[in-house]
């Protein structure tokens, strides 16, 4: 039987992905390769943070102990964040930013398209709204994968390097935690294992057009969903949580 706690953790899983990816994108604001691209990336960050807030507000309501969206966003310890390793990877260069985005967008859209059928009306509503935003994200990042892959020699090399580094984080997207299983049983959550085939197909299609390849990998990285993150995460959180940790219990 699904417990309230399972559902809350399930929501954290989806919302933390949006928060951490949004945080990474917002680091770039003011530093993009062109003004137009800067504005576009910020729009995606705003979409993701907007989704984050909807999920956290709902989780706060389910918790019912007076916690707010900000308590959830800012006051957990690192082990309690359930985002996948992929989204916390740093903005090494624009090729990494776009590849990370693309790998996540394709999954994100598939996830929301299933989640909109959830028996939980709130989650279904958030998913429906998100589908429109994420469809655009996927289009944007797919277009850029093609530009970078089939652009210059240098851009292909750089982007292939990003793919080679990031592909190992994609398998985790399709892992089911205990919470995920319970919530799926209750017909609220999505069985992400079923999305994998379509995911691989879509990624492959775009990469082929972009003249890029998926590396042969025998071992994939995992852990984020259990709260075991990469070393990058601590620094990301120390930025994110700085104010709330330094000045506890204040209103902003």
């Amino acid at each position: 039987m699904m417990k309230n706690e399972n559902l809350v953790h399930y929501i954290y899983g989806i919302a933390d992905n949006a928060l951490i990816l949004g945080q990474r994108l917002s680091e770039l604001c003011g530093h993009g390769p062109s003004l137009e691209t800067d504005i576009a990336l910020t729009n995606m960050a705003l979409d993701l943070l907007g989704q984050t807030r909807s999920y956290y507000q709902y989780a706060a309501q389910l918790l019912g102990d007076g916690k707010t969206e900000d308590d959830i966003a800012y006051l957990r310890i690192e082990r309690q964040y359930k985002n996948v390793l992929l989204v916390e990877q740093p903005n090494k260069h624009f090729g990494y930013v776009i590849t990370r985005q693309f790998f996540y967008d394709v999954f994100h859209l598939l996830l929301l398209q299933e989640l909109q059928n959830s028996k939980d009306e709130t989650l279904s509503a958030i998913a429906k709204k998100g589908i429109k935003e994420v469809s655009y994200h996927q289009r944007f990042s797919s277009d850029w994968m093609k530009r970078l892959g089939d652009g210059t020699e240098e851009s292909r090399k750089k982007t292939q390097e990003a793919i080679n580094d990031l592909w190992k984080f994609t398998d985790e997207l399709f892992h089911m935690t205990e919470d995920d299983k319970q919530v799926f049983e209750a017909e609220i959550g999505v069985d992400v294992t079923t999305l994998k085939q379509l995911y691989n197909q879509r990624v492959k299609e775009v990469l082929e057009e972009a003249t890029l390849t998926i590396p042969e990998i025998k071992w994939f990285q995992k852990g984020g969903k259990q709260g075991i993150h990469s070393e990058h995460m601590g620094y990301l959180l120390s930025d994110l949580q700085y104010m709330q940790r330094t000045y506890p219990n204040m209103k902003w």
């Binding site: 390769p33 062109s34 691209t37 093609k146 530009r147 851009s155 750089k158």
Partner: peptide, 14 residues
């Protein structure tokens, strides 16, 4: 400067 290869890639692709 760091964006140059990105802008070049987009032009080459176009």
């Amino acid at each position: 400067e760091e964006g140059e290869w990105v802008r070049d890639a987009a032009m080459a692709y176009a």
